[in-house]
Amino acid sequence: MTADAAVVVENAEKWFGLNPALANVSLRVHPGEFVALLGRNGAGKSTLLRVVARLVKPNRGRVRIWGVDVARDPERGRERIGLVAHQTYLYPGLTARENLRLHARLHRLEGAGERVAAALTEAGLNLSADRPVRGFSRGMQQRLAIARATLHGPELVLLDEPFTGLDLEAAELLSERLRQWAAAGRTIVMATHNLEQGLEGVTRWVLLDRGRIVTEWTGDSTAVRSRYRQFLKGAPPGAQGRRT
């Protein structure tokens, strides 16, 4: 019954002592959906993504990716995931090609050489493919980071505040990629608090506050934008009575 969903999070909880990071979060993402996770810093967006990728072990609850329980078989879950974060995950001492090759070997990709070459061309890094990443500009590094995260053709792309620290050019490229992925039917879950960029294809908006899913919206970004602003300005649920 759940095999048709791309991601199923059931009652996930993560806490330590009296500090809840996620409180009873359930989320179901269908294949081809583009879900945006909204919320303040520390609302639990990043933790939720990391629970899905099984970097964080939840205290309670289950996560399945196309029916695979990630607690039982995290490697098979991660095979289908690509995570784009604001960190680049690149080794500065290795060249662009070597970085991609390492990723290909860890994913045990067939025809790694051609795939790496194709990814380098697509990222526009052909000329600098054999230079160490340390000398790359911020924009080049970001392009390479995106190429790296999606080299293995993940069906599920997770993005964690991907626009943080990007220059204009790199941000445009990322938006373009997001459109392509959405059009290609990939499942996308993006945590963001930036309401200006990369939101064209979003099909569903999930609002988190203090580790809980507060509400969900569907619809296009202009309407959501104003509602989200209102949420940010207004007191969070439960504290309204105290405002004068």
């Binding site: 990728a53 970097l55 490697e75 098979r76 991660r78 095979e79 995931i81 995570l83 974060a85 960190q87 680049t88 995950y89 690149l90 080794y91 500065p92 990723h103 860890l106 994913h107 790296r148």
Partner: peptide
């Protein structure tokens, strides 16, 4: 630097 350890952890390796 660049949190590459998390990058390794994200790949399908034990």
């Amino acid at each position: 630097e660049n949190d590459t350890l998390e990058g390794l952890m994200l790949s399908p390796v034990k």
